[in-house]
Amino acid sequence: MNNSKKIVLIGHFGVGKSSLVRRYVQNTFTDNYMVTIGVHIVKKEIQLNQKSITLIIWDIEGKDDIKKVRASYLIGTSGFIYVVDPTRPQTYEHITSEINFITTQYPKAKYLTVANKSDLIEPEEIKRLFDSLQIKIDYFASAKSGDEVSSVFENLAQQLLDNV
């Protein structure tokens, strides 16, 4: 039909979903915490290996339980980005069951896990932390420094392109 894809960022309050989106789309960052209410939608068109894809990014309000997220925000999603804050254990303690929920409810969708705010912890330390918990984190990123942010979105976009 066309090459627009819906991407949704999920995770607890304040893990940095909006900040990651803002860094990726506008290349800016702010320390002020502006809580997202409902959903904010932005778009980014990118080229990957001569193929173009339009990401319609849904930055939704944080919830401590994915089952509390309005189903209508999640329906029709091609790719999920699950964001955690490595400095706050409660944001990743249930990550396995949350990811399970996504893969059973939306089996066709791709997903990535991201530990944001990597500027606050030594890289080695974060890796050790998640390894010891047997939690698979795909990217250690920082919306503040910009580190790895575009890789997250581009990796997901590439998976969506490969999918068709």
């Binding site: 039909m1 066309n2 939608i41 209508s72 029709g76 999603t77």
Partner: peptide, 19 residues
């Protein structure tokens, strides 16, 4: 569901249709 734009038309220039 996805809210993706399938098609659109407009009489005047407008803000981003996808959004």
């Amino acid at each position: 569901g996805s809210g993706l734009l399938i098609a659109s038309a407009s009489n005047s220039e407008s803000i981003d249709e996808d959004m």
